[in-house]
């Protein structure tokens, strides 16, 4: 049985590498029971998208829009 520390680590690792079959199975079992880690997994996706949008200058574009009266 994975702890939340283990599960979030696997979720994080899966952003770099494909997890082993065994790791995917234990992770799936944990996520079925743990809403906190399910949310964490979604947050990782949002973090990634936000970081890329930030690097692409999205924050500056919203800044310009808001600068208009």
């Amino acid at each position: 049985m994975l702890t939340c520390n283990d599960a979030t680590r696997l979720l994080s690792d899966s952003q770099e590498d494909r997890l082993s079959f065994k790791a995917r199975m234990s992770l799936t079992a944990h996520l079925m029971m743990c809403s906190g880690c399910r949310n964490f997994g979604r947050h990782l996706q949002i973090l990634r998208e936000a970081a890329r949008a930030f690097a692409a200058g999205e924050d500056e574009r919203t800044g310009e829009e808001q600068g208009q009266p």
């Binding site: 702890t3 283990d6 906190g36 979604r42 947050h43 949008a53 930030f54 999205e58 924050d59």
Partner: peptide
């Protein structure tokens, strides 16, 4: 190794709206 109650991640409302909000980027 389990979430402390106050630390357990909650569902985020409208993440897609945040990226269009200037203030969100300041927080980010």
């Amino acid at each position: 190794g389990f979430w402390r109650t106050a630390e357990r991640p909650v569902a985020w409302e409208n993440p897609e709206r945040a990226v269009h909000d200037h203030q969100f980027w300041r927080v980010f």
